[in-house]
């Protein structure tokens, strides 16, 4: 049989080209949203909120959370849309009738979507840098632990890309994707410590929040940027990596079973 690594690359390239060629749909909306977030939460409200942790200005405190929010949303949306749209118009059959293994299928879809999440995360980081550079009251935001940050951001994007595959296979209509985004992803994000520190919560809510994977993701990325974390950074990254591995295995199993794909 001919080299199957070529097959994986072909699907990966197809998936990446799909969003790279449509920047107005994929990269412009998070750019505009985050300019607004930084302007309102970082500059206008942030100067009144003061600082968190070790005297971290709010604009810097909120930046890692916004990066996670963008990476997660885009990783999830890309994977779920790509799979569901392919099912809806049945062109996913081009892939399903090919000799690509179920692991190769999962890898290509997840990697392309995770890359979109990372790219959006980088765009948001650059916006954060520009805002802190332009604001006379703040130091420019830096990266305290670059390798840790890079691994965390990739893991965060990949985890939600993996979830996106499950969503795309589960959805029976476009409404389902909206439901997942509005009723699952968004609450997890808003209660995941993007806009407030975990220590701001009472005991019970603090404990409940620990079950939210977003808490660990935001905390890990915040540690990468600022060197400040509320949880053990090694534990947060470990949870992220294990969760990504588990959900990826679920993706492969769903493809192998033909869930949502074959009758």
């Amino acid at each position: 049989m001919r080299g199957l690594a070529v097959g994986t690359r072909a699907l990966l390239k197809r998936e990446i080209l799909r969003y790279v060629r449509r920047p107005r749909n994929t990269f412009l909306p998070p750019f505009i949203n985050n300019v607004l977030y930084f302007a309102v939460f970082g500059v206008i409200l942030g100067s009144r909120i003061g600082s968190y942790g070790d005297g971290i200005p709010y604009i810097k405190f909120v930046l890692p959370g916004l990066v996670v929010l963008g990476a997660v949303s885009n990783g999830f949306e890309n994977a779920s849309f790509s799979i569901f749209h392919g099912r809806w118009n049945e062109y996913i059959h081009e892939v399903l009738t090919s000799p690509l293994s179920y692991r190769q299928l999962s890898f290509a879809y997840v990697a392309a979507s995770a890359l979109r999440g990372v790219l959006v995360g980088v765009i948001i980081s650059v916006i954060g840098v520009v805002f802190t550079f332009a604001h006379p009251g703040y130091d420019v935001v830096g990266v305290a632990h670059p390798v840790y940050l890079a691994v965390s951001l990739v893991a965060v994007s990949a985890l939600f890309a993996c979830f996106g595959i499950v969503g795309g296979l589960w959805a029976r209509d476009f409404d389902y994707l909206t439901v997942l985004n509005q009723f699952l992803i968004r609450p997890l994000v808003f209660f995941g410590g993007v806009f407030y520190p975990l220590s701001a919560l009472d005991g019970v809510w603090y404990t409940v929040s620990l079950a939210n994977p977003m808490v660990h993701m935001v905390d890990a990325v915040r540690y990468g940027f600022l060197g400040y974390a509320e949880r053990d950074p090694a534990l947060s990254l470990g949870i992220l990596l294990v969760a990504t591995g588990v959900v990826f295995a679920v993706d492969v199993a769903l493809f192998a079973r033909g869930y949502g794909l074959t009758e």
Binding site: M1, R2, L4, V6, A10, L11, R14, R18, Y91, P99
Partner: peptide
Amino acid sequence: DRFFPIEEVLVHKAGYHG
């Protein structure tokens, strides 16, 4: 696949087959 010109659709399909 509606996202790509038909030439690319064929290139992708051939690619999936290695």
